[in-house]
Design a binder for these strands. Structure first.
Lengths: 231, 231
DNA sequence: TATCATAACTGATATATATCATAGGGAGCT
DNA sequence: AGCTCCCTATGATATATATCAGTTATGATA
């Protein structure tokens, strides 16, 4: 079950020195007094598509997925959020309701800061606002570029991409526990579950990776990269 | 050929009252004195992938395409920019070099404002910065959502989407001149040129549209919408 | 006007990918 | 223990889409 955490340790939060480095002591204290830190177990929903947005939220620990449900009922995973990511993406500034559902795919800690407080600080402090704009732009660009490069590649290239993504951007190691099922992988890189499984098996037979359930061990990252590059 | 225009008519620019409505007279004059307005003929390149970013740019008249060239040499169109769009997208804030090439697909007028001037105004004026963040967030969201919904649909749905896109979002009429070739349509909605042509022909045979070269006349928008919705 | 290049188009075929069918394995539940 | 559900897995088949080949328009240029 999710539970609200004691927030007395905010002063040493890495996020603070990253995203809030343009704020003075007084502003930081204001944020501290308008925030809540919540622990979520793997699988729990953090916020739901359609819900009113009233917090700015960032991930302190764990891993989350952003997903959307199209009219045709199929779930699509937009992106994976990692610690220090501003997981609501930009939509919380343009939209009064969440356009994505966010779910913990590992035990996670999320900070909720009152959105009006953040906006108020931005209005007062243009440097903070600009700094935030620059940082969040990078996130938005990443999502766009990732979508394009996934969709212009065929299945082997997509699987190569996602394996390297977890190795290089999430876990920083060539051996890791996949945080999501094969079905979710499929939703993330736009392919059928069966083909995700099939191509993982091919890669195993080709000695590119080893698989033990959710455990992935990358044996030949360079060749994987080449498969991705070639499409 | 492109040519620099006289900019004496800035005071009545629609963009100004849209994007710059949080700025005072002095700030507006500063922008005026650091901007250049340039006319581009259809087909001319406005900025190139890799080039250094030193301007904030918005479209006053015409229509442009944003494209990127993947490693595999294929061009992909990211989005179509229309008047009042902030055509550099967010990347100009996160990246010191352009990540897209922008080309006029109709005779166009583009305003270049010194980016440092804009950033300076944002630092001074948090309300302006936040307002801009909210507006540009919407653009980024649109691009992301469009990419996802295109890629989760099959060919007929994609063609239906793009036909309705030009009708509803660009020209606001059910009869219009397509500003791009079939090949460019294909690059925009991720399919082969032949299939773009084929499905346009199917739609013509099905009495959904009429086609005369680049002229499109939508006969049954509701049915097109249904084709899009169903995928 | 003739010529060339490129775009639009169509049919036939190959390929990529999804879907269907089936089965074993593991987790949670009674 | 047995049951049920979902995940993983694999093969066979159907379908969607791209590619290849060839034809007809269209527009630019000399």
């Amino acid at each position: 079950m999710s539970k609200i955490l004691d927030t007395s340790n905010c002063k040493h939060c890495a996020y603070r020195s990253w995203a809030f480095n343009k704020l003075d002591q007084q502003a930081l204290e204001k944020i501290d007094s308008h925030k809540t830190e919540v622990f979520y177990e793997k699988g729990e929903v953090i916020c739901t598509e359609g819900e009113e947005v009233n917090s700015f939220l960032y991930l302190r620990k764990g891993l989350v997925k952003l997903l959307t449900t199209e009219k045709n009922e199929k779930e699509h995973i937009i992106s994976i959020g990692k610690p220090l990511d501003f997981i609501g993406l930009l939509s919380i500034f343009s939209n009064s309701n969440h356009i994505y559902t966010i779910t913990a795919i590992e035990d996670s800690v999320v900070c909720f800061v009152d959105l009006e407080v953040i906006k108020g600080l931005m209005r007062q402090n243009g440097k903070f606002a600009l700094d935030f704009l620059e940082k969040s732009s990078r996130v938005a660009d990443d999502v766009i570029n990732t979508r394009i490069s996934i969709n212009t590649k065929q299945l082997r290239g997509r699987i190569a991409y996602i394996l390297l993504f977890f190795a290089n951007h999430i876990y920083n190691t060539s051996e890791y526990e996949l945080p999501i099922s094969r079905k979710e992988l499929a939703q993330l890189i736009d392919m059928s579950t069966e083909n995700v499984i099939r191509i993982l098996s091919e890669f195993r037979k080709d000695k590119l990776i080893e698989i033990e359930g959710k455990l992935i061990r990358i044996l030949d990252g360079q060749r994987l990269q080449r498969i991705y590059d070639l499409g």
